[in-house]
Nucleic acid binder design. Structure first.
Length: 232
DNA sequence: AAGTGGGTCAACCGCAACTGC
DNA sequence: AGCAGTTGCGGTTGACCCACT
């Protein structure tokens, strides 16, 4: 067993480019393989985290809208610290983001609110016995951006409790709010949104500051085997 | 100007669950 | 069925920034 020293700490722009390249090439599933093949001295785990929390093109960045805040508050009351589950209900938000947000903003608000009135009074639109309803925001691949595979693939399919909550009103709220904030959301897009596999170019040539050279890993030959394996 | 405290965010860790052999 | 490898999740930490004193 050859021990490869793994790098930790903040990701560099170069590493991000590398990761985006290999994820576009291999898909966002086989993280360990991506970590090895890319030549990044990162663990698969670290690669996945970086992709899910920062590089994924469907990520919405910027401040939470009031509707998202409300949704987090309500879902947290319902599910507790099930951040990934909550994240699946908020298009473009990650569990990490929501978790961080909760710690700072929402916990305060929740406590304040608790003092006045419970968010789940008898008139709440939530119901344990509401009819199941498909709600999960999906990408063009018909799966949440948040779902990069693994055990969650199965969990997403069978976890019917995800849909136990009748959230029509909340969802309408989100749709309304997103209509209103569409423009600003686009402006807040992730730095990798414009990365294009066709050109392998980053839109950063402004001021000539970034001639990104993608280092092709020594392990790149492994891709040959991988592609053969995938294409049969 | 320096110190301090709170907010924000990215990243790591440990554990549990899943998958494939 | 059992095991090893991989992936996902939730908790936690630490760096950075900014406002305030």
């Amino acid at each position: 067993m050859v021990h490869v020293e793994t790098k930790k700490g903040p990701w560099t722009e170069q590493e991000d480019v590398q990761l985006v390249f290999y994820v576009n090439l291999l898909g966002d599933r086989r993280w360990d393989f991506i970590a090895k093949v890319s030549g990044l001295k990162r663990t698969g785990k670290s690669c996945r985290l970086r992709w899910v929390n920062y590089l994924h093109p469907d990520l919405k960045r910027g401040k939470m809208t009031p509707h998202e805040e409300r949704l987090v508050l309500q879902l947290h009351s319902r599910w507790g610290n099930r951040w990934s589950r909550i994240a699946r209900k908020l298009p473009g938000r990650t569990d990490n983001e929501i978790k961080n947000y909760w710690r700072t903003h929402m916990r305060k608000k929740a406590l304040a609110k608790k003092k006045t009135i419970s968010p789940f009074s008898s008139s709440s639109s939530f119901s344990l016995n509401s009819p199941a309803r498909e709600f999960t925001p999906v990408t063009e691949n018909n799966r949440s951006f948040y779902d990069t595979g693994g055990r969650n693939v199965l969990a997403n399919n069978i976890d019917k409790s995800d849909f136990e909550v009748d959230m029509d009103e909340i969802w309408k709220d989100i749709e309304l709010s997103e209509e209103n904030c569409n423009f600003s959301c686009q402006l807040m897009a992730s730095p990798t949104w414009d990365f294009c596999l066709d050109s392998f170019l980053w839109p950063m040539d402004i001021e000539g500051q970034s001639k990104m050279v993608l280092p092709i890993s020594d392990n790149f030959n492994s891709l040959t085997f991988y592609n053969q394996e995938m294409t049969g």
